[in-house]
Nucleic acid binder design. Structure first.
Lengths: 149, 149
DNA sequence: AATTTATATTTGTACATACAAGTAATGTAC
DNA sequence: GTACATTACTTGTATGTACAAATATAAATT
């Protein structure tokens, strides 16, 4: 469905305004696909993002700053995200011996199991994106890369 | 800059996961361009969206349900958005005589002036999107339309 | 070594969102 | 015309975000 029809707007002032509206609208659409999926598994999208970053380095730790820089959503408050993940037993946190300002975060076995559970179900989530062919997905992604300059 | 480099991730499991990360990341990027622009003018993106919808029907009123359906971000709480806009004197609200459940919202002169002020400055905002040609903006927009199915 | 500057994380707070429940007016069925 | 359902908006609340200020450690400067 064209963005014009989605938001009942006859036309846009120019193609860039149309693209901006479309990006914001599509982001909401993506969130509506993604949020219930993760909610069912007892996670938020951001919590999952952190766990995936930690698995990438496992068994090495990752510090807060690095987590922040690797997150898709940079605005997340890493301190509070980690608090939640500790409550659930998915990560551990320790003060770094070499630099006591830094916090070493590691994923636990329980965290790895949760991620495995997510992986098992995730094809069901990504099926919702298969309205585009793989080539089109690549093309869209490249256009977004170029949009950001 | 490629999404891989933005979030320091070597590769994605497939092109659809890459696209999803890219969409969420790019949405944040867009918000970071857009938010300060509107903040400077004393509005939020959603408040501006409502005002633009009201101008489209001016001098006719628009009811809450229609505002909701035309908004780019459907999750906004229209009641509270309108409260804010009334505080600022940009809109009026009246109970609809024909159906007393409905609320008629209208943009004021002051609201129209504020929108004119936004319009005057907006080329400065949209210049940030000119890393894509117009044709590419159209192509990106069409891919997003098709992604949503 | 004391002072300043920079880095890494935490905390506070105002505001926004998601989602469920509540209220009030209208429409429908009997 | 009373009872029930539906529509349109409002309110409450828990959680999340944005942004600024605070803390604590380390590094650099004098």
């Amino acid at each position: 469905m064209r963005i014009e029809d989605e938001i009942h707007q006859k036309h846009f002032k120019d193609d860039y305004r149309r693209l901006m509206a479309n990006l914001l609208f599509t982001n909401n659409w993506v969130n509506q696909q993604v949020m219930p999926f993760f909610k069912n598994l007892g996670l938020t999208l951001q919590q999952h993002n952190v766990l995936a970053i930690l698995r990438g380095q496992h068994p090495d730790p990752v510090c807060f700053g690095d987590i922040q820089n690797r997150m898709v959503d940079r605005n997340s408050n890493v301190t509070r995200l980690i608090d939640k993940l500790i409550e659930k037993g998915y990560v551990t946190r320790d003060i770094c011996a070499a630099n006591r300002r830094m916090i070493e975060v590691r994923i636990t076995e329980k965290g790895l199991e949760k991620l495995a559970q997510v992986d098992e179900k995730s094809p069901e989530l990504f099926a919702k994106f298969h309205n585009l062919s793989r080539d089109e997905a690549v093309m869209a992604s490249n256009l977004l890369d170029r949009l950001r300059g």
